[in-house]
């Protein structure tokens, strides 16, 4: 998962003879210090503060208490009263992230396969397009879908004007949409809803899915499927028995990475999800920067999110190294 593992080492360059403190040793020292301060200390701070205690009306103090974790898992009044509110939020984090990442990978896979079969120049043009949309800020994406899904000027309006709403009513599907919360009595209504949330999140990581699948797919050996074809296998059989098995691991690795990325997504959920389906990321925000001002509890939630992410990344790493070993 780390970059170090992905890079094949070059044979060692000729070394300069050591004489006291070599420039290389000094460089190592400086770099180690930089990395330690900026890449480790912030995480340690989050972990340490998660054991701190909130003081009413006065921020928080250093402490060593498991209250924040207890509050997360069973509620502050445990054992008298049990609430799973925060676990439920974590559950929604997982729920949205899993569906959105799987959806993104499933639709990005055929696209990327087709992309790798194009000419190199055409590929580069597509990549520019995909990278440009990948780098678009989450706030712009959310803004775009917000306009697209809004009742006055977006798709619902289009549905109404083109008569699609009437048609849906005529065939009876409108009632189903209403039950799913995607329509009010007069017209379809797409936000706030799970549909809008998952659509936006999926859209957000779709370019990432393409970029992550691209190396694995572009290294697929075409001679394998050609061999299968000469042996009389149909296109579908080739996809099922040759292509898919050879990319199974990168496929799962990509899904995991996107999942981890989406675990922390904030803007799409705060705009599109209904209040009862807010996630841990939103809770972290409101504890640390928002109205609650409970940094220790926010940190505890961040630690739990971090642990969930690390476990997933670890499994992704295992999958990747397995894939490399083959």
């Amino acid at each position: 998962m780390t970059i170090a593992d992905d890079i094949k080492m070059a044979p060692a360059a000729p070394k300069t003879p050591a004489k006291g403190v070599t420039p290389k040793a000094a460089l190592y020292a400086v770099l180690s210090a930089v990395m330690a301060v900026f890449c480790i200390v912030p995480f340690i701070l989050v972990i340490v503060i998660s054991f701190g205690r909130k003081v009413d009306g006065a921020g928080w103090v250093w402490a060593f208490t498991f209250d924040n974790y207890q509050r997360f898992f069973v509620g502050i009044l445990w054992p008298d009263e049990v609430t799973f509110l925060y676990l439920q939020q974590l559950g929604y984090s997982f729920y949205f992230a899993i569906i959105a990442s799987v959806l993104a990978v499933l639709t990005a896979l055929p696209f990327t396969l087709l992309l790798t079969r194009l000419k190199r120049r055409t590929q580069a043009i597509w990549l520019v397009f995909i990278l440009a949309s990948l780098s678009m800020s989450e706030v712009f994406i959310v803004m775009g879908w917000d306009i697209l899904l809004s009742n006055n000027s977006g798709l619902p309006k289009l549905f109404q004007v083109t008569g699609l709403t009437q048609w849906l009513k005529d065939v009876g599907w409108f009632q189903i949409l209403r039950e799913m919360g995607l329509a009010n009595p007069r017209n379809v209504k797409f936000k706030p809803s799970e549909f809008a949330t998952i659509l936006t999140m999926s859209y957000l990581v779709w370019p990432y899915a393409v970029i992550l699948l691209y190396p694995a797919l572009s290294r697929l050996d075409p001679s394998l499927s050609e061999a299968a074809r000469t042996m009389g296998a149909g296109r579908w059989t080739i996809t099922r028995t040759v292509t898919l098995p050879s990319i199974r691991l990168p496929l799962m690795g990509t899904t995991l990475l996107l999942f981890v990325f989406l675990l922390g997504s904030y803007v799409s959920i705060s705009v599109f999800a209904t209040p009862d389906k807010q996630t841990t990321a939103v809770a972290i925000y409101s504890n640390i920067r928002g109205s609650n001002l409970d940094a220790p509890f926010g940190s505890a939630q961040a630690v739990i999110l971090l642990i969930s992410a690390s476990v997933c990344l670890y499994f992704g790493h295992l999958l990747n190294s397995k894939a490399e070993a083959r």
Binding site: P42, F43, V260, Y266, A281, I288, A302, L306, A309, L313
Partner: peptide, 11 residues
């Protein structure tokens, strides 16, 4: 590699 909100909080 970690969810951006975690490193955001940490920083």
């Amino acid at each position: 590699a970690v969810p951006p909100i975690v490193i955001g909080v940490g920083l």
